[in-house]
């Protein structure tokens, strides 16, 4: 059971930890206090328990598509929040202190939603085995190992981001968040295909021979950018679209605010 447990927990923890880490490092970079983060952790943890306990009812809603709809909704919600968050970060770079409370709330909600989604799966998994003492020890140890690896990667990434030269921090964080956000969209698309809300097609390619999804690197890439060995054309198209929308929005914001920053206040 150990290996299974490690894989399940690692995948969920890694997905949440990447987002958490990048946002936390960004928050430190901008100079926000970390109270929002603790609040997001608490709310996300609480939410995932509520979600886990009501999963049966949620699954049965909307003709048995409730689970996918809610998860897809959460993913799209996180995408939107990340779009706002990164834009505000770019604006903040040129105008420090601009709309910090909105930024804080966006990050809080993004982290909370991420923990809610990933935490619920961990909760259900551990809850399933806590009544089976023969397996629970093994499951728990696997969970500890998975969580340990996931959080360690997160912690090292956090200090890596903080150690970056300041002029590159914003760019690298924005690129990372764009990739993560694209992954969110891709997962949402996947879920909508699963319930037939979006058409399913023949896969465009198959890279599973090159990199299996269940390998460690595959899991890492899945957590970062929702790596899919055999995506359908629609998935690829929407993934590219989500990346393009975010990149263009950030580029545009950057362009507008940089030109504003260069023109002194005389114009007003």
């Amino acid at each position: 059971m150990l290996l299974t447990s490690v894989i399940i927990i690692l995948r969920e923890v890694l997905e949440a930890a990447l987002l958490l880490t990048i946002l936390l490092a960004m928050s430190r970079f901008i100079g926000l206090n970390t109270r929002w983060f603790l609040l997001a952790l608490a709310l996300g943890g609480l939410g995932s328990i509520i979600y886990g306990n009501n999963l049966a009812a949620i699954s049965n809603a909307f003709d048995g598509t409730g689970q996918e709809l809610l998860n897809a909704g959460l993913h799209i919600f996180i995408y939107a929040l990340l779009l706002i968050t990164t834009s505000l970060m770019v604006i903040n770079y040129y105008r420090p202190g601009c709309r910090l409370s909105l930024l804080k709330w966006c990050m809080l909600l993004a982290v909370m939603s991420s923990i809610l989604r990933e935490g619920a799966e961990i909760y259900i998994y551990l809850y399933t085995f806590h009544t089976q003492p023969a397996l629970f020890g093994s499951v728990l140890k696997g969970a500890l190992i998975g969580a340990g690896i996931g959080f360690s990667i997160g912690a090292l990434l956090y200090y890596l981001l903080l150690a970056l030269p300041e002029r590159h921090t914003l760019l690298i964080t924005c690129i990372l968040l764009t990739i993560v956000a694209g992954g969110m969209c891709s997962q949402a698309v996947q879920l909508l295909i699963q319930i037939d809300w979006l058409p399913s097609q023949m896969p465009l390619w198959d890279t599973s021979a090159l990199l299996r999804e269940d390998s460690l690197v595959g899991q890492l890439l899945y957590a970062l950018m929702s790596y899919e060995a055999s995506p359908t054309p629609l998935e690829v198209f929407l993934y590219a679209m989500s990346l393009a929308v975010m990149a263009l929005t950030l580029g545009f914001t950057h362009y507008v605010y940089r030109s504003h920053a260069h023109v002194p206040a005389v114009a007003h």
């Binding site: 190992i145 340990g148 690896i149 959080f151 360690s152 990667i153 912690a155 090292l156 200090y159 460690l216």
Partner: peptide, 14 residues
Amino acid sequence: LITLLATIVLVNFV
């Protein structure tokens, strides 16, 4: 503490 522990955890657990 955090970086050393994270490294140890990562290497040992893997």
